[in-house]
Amino acid sequence: MTRINEHPILGVYQKGEPVEFTFDGQPLRGRAGEPLALALKAAGVLIHRYTAKLRQPRGIFCAIGRCTDCVMIVDGRPNVRTCLTPLAAGMDVRTQYGRGEKQ
């Protein structure tokens, strides 16, 4: 259970409506408007990209747009910081290899 249903201080989180999107072609569900990176995390996806030279995996690190570890290919655009990108229905999200050139 990665999502917190009810929090002792914050209560029930105000969330957008459930939407579908795809990760590497596979359908996943998240909440509209939440950061894409967190929709992925809640769905169990931790690896966002692989580095150019050493092909090492990277995932969320700062969650505020500073580190660029979380970039992915979103609707065909590479290097999108998923921690800052609000999830929208039908988004096509793909693991990024290197700087986003074809694998």
């Binding site: 999502r3 929090h7 914050l10 969320i60 700062c62 969650a63």
Partner: peptide
């Protein structure tokens, strides 16, 4: 330290306190 699953304290707070994700 670069593995997915290593994160800043601020990131942890953003996840759980702003977005309700552990």
């Amino acid at each position: 330290w670069t593995l997915p699953g290593v994160l800043g304290a601020g990131a942890a707070q953003t996840m759980m306190n702003l977005h309700g994700v552990k």
